[in-house]
């Protein structure tokens, strides 16, 4: 079991191996299909991704209480939907960790080599997930809606996260990824 902090250093990423368990603290950004598309179209991002370098495939349930957002339910979505966008997102924005469920395709695994890892969080565990979100920092691109917008969150000891694809291209997924 390892504790890691975002933004994660390249050295830490390269030392992680398939099957390792990690707990993540710091800043994270959620992104699903629509956000990935928009990130790739944007000339400049409206948020500081460099403060985090962690992309979390998720669309939480948030509640607005007198102007403040409260995270009600937060867990991963199926990562393979982002297969077509992720190599470019890794290349352009330097993502060092992608958190999701179900694994990602060969092209993504290739793009991750030497610089990025895929961390699996148990799908459906959104009550536990929300309990590890310490602060909702902001909602970016609110026009995309609650599920598809980019949520900037502060998490503490988020896990257990399993290193399911490491930076050497090794993967725990035997099937279901193309």
């Amino acid at each position: 079991m390892k504790k890691i902090n975002a933004p994660i250093s390249l050295e830490t990423i390269r030392a992680l191996r398939c099957g390792d368990t990690v707990f993540l603290s710091g800043r994270i950004f959620t992104a699903r299909d629509a956000a990935h598309k928009r990130m790739l179209k944007a000339k400049k991002l409206p948020f500081k991704f460099e403060d985090s370098l962690v992309l979390f495939h998720a669309g939480p349930i948030m509640k607005n209480e007198d102007g403040d957002w409260k995270c009600i339910s937060f867990g991963p979505t199926t990562s393979s939907r982002m297969d077509d966008f992720e190599p470019d997102v890794i290349e352009r924005f330097g993502a060092r960790a992608i958190v999701g469920k179900g694994g990602m395709g060969k092209k993504v695994v290739e793009a991750m080599k030497g610089r990025c890892v895929y961390l699996a969080f148990t799908g459906g565990c959104a009550a536990v997930g929300a309990s590890m979100v310490k602060r909702v920092v902001a909602l970016h691109w609110p026009d995309l809606g609650m599920a598809e917008g980019v949520w900037e969150l502060e998490v503490e000891n988020f896990g257990p996260l399993i290193v399911a694809i490491d930076s050497k291209g090794k993967s725990l997924y035997k099937s279901g990824t193309r």
Partner: peptide, 28 residues
């Protein structure tokens, strides 16, 4: 140990969702 950890997190989540009355999964 990975399979065990996944299932035990599912069980923990089921208990927490019931206790706090919050959705088990964010995808309702």
């Amino acid at each position: 140990s990975i399979a065990k950890a996944n299932i035990s997190l599912m069980l923990k989540n089921i208990g927490l969702a019931r206790k706090e009355n919050v959705p088990i999964c964010q995808d309702t």
